[in-house]
């Protein structure tokens, strides 16, 4: 069985030889070979032996992939073959798609732009609140606000596209299109 997994910002190739529960098998992770055995304990808890060394891991299945806990660290592992569930990278980190979505479930407090506005990368677009804290969602890249799909007091979730930004042609910059 072959797997391609997205984990911690990298894609890991994994191949397992040998099948069946409780059986020992060899797993190639990246370019290393591991000898692995496991015991499935109560829901989501796995007692692993990796090259003979015990390790404990906990797995929760979510709509975005498997969340795995190992020694205080929490990873999201996603099948790299599956299309991305519109969750995307955190906004503001790089020039991503021109779509703005909240990183967590939240409520819209203020909308700072209007459709048709020209915005710069990093400019605040929508202020959302979750758990008593306000956060400003910023433009992942410069461009024109094509559509706003949210209103004040809306409950929104990751994946909901609140603002769509389309790229402005360089030549047209500064030229009013609609007069």
């Amino acid at each position: 069985m072959k797997y391609r997994l997205d984990i911690a910002g990298q894609t890991v190739e994994m191949e397992a030889h040998g099948t069946g529960k409780g059986e020992a098998y060899h797993v190639t992770i990246g370019n290393q070979v591991y000898h692995i055995r496991y015991l499935a304990l109560e829901g989501g808890c796995y007692h692993l032996f990796v090259n003979g060394r015990a390790a404990e891991a906990f797995v929760a299945r979510t709509e975005h992939g498997k969340q795995v806990f190992v020694k205080g660290k929490c990873f999201l592992l996603r099948d790299a073959h599956r299309p991305l569930l519109r969750r995307g990278k955190r906004p503001g980190l790089q020039d991503g798609p021109g779509e703005v979505t909240p990183p967590m479930p939240a409520v819209v407090v203020r909308i700072l732009v209007q459709e048709g506005d020209l915005v710069e990368k990093g400019q605040g677009l929508v202020v959302v609140t979750a758990m008593k804290m306000e956060t400003t969602l910023v433009a992942p890249r410069g461009g024109k606000v094509k559509k706003i799909n949210a209103a004040v007091n809306d409950k929104v979730a990751p994946g909901d596209i609140l603002v769509e930004i389309e790229e402005e042609e360089k030549e047209e910059e500064g030229v009013e299109e609609n007069g």
């Binding site: 911690a8 797993v27 591991y34 499935a40 796995y46 990873f75």
Partner: peptide, 21 residues
Amino acid sequence: TQRAEDVHIACAAYLADELEL
């Protein structure tokens, strides 16, 4: 950002959970 340690253990757990599933 979280350190990318124990990634292989997380991968092994993913596999175990797939087999379990």
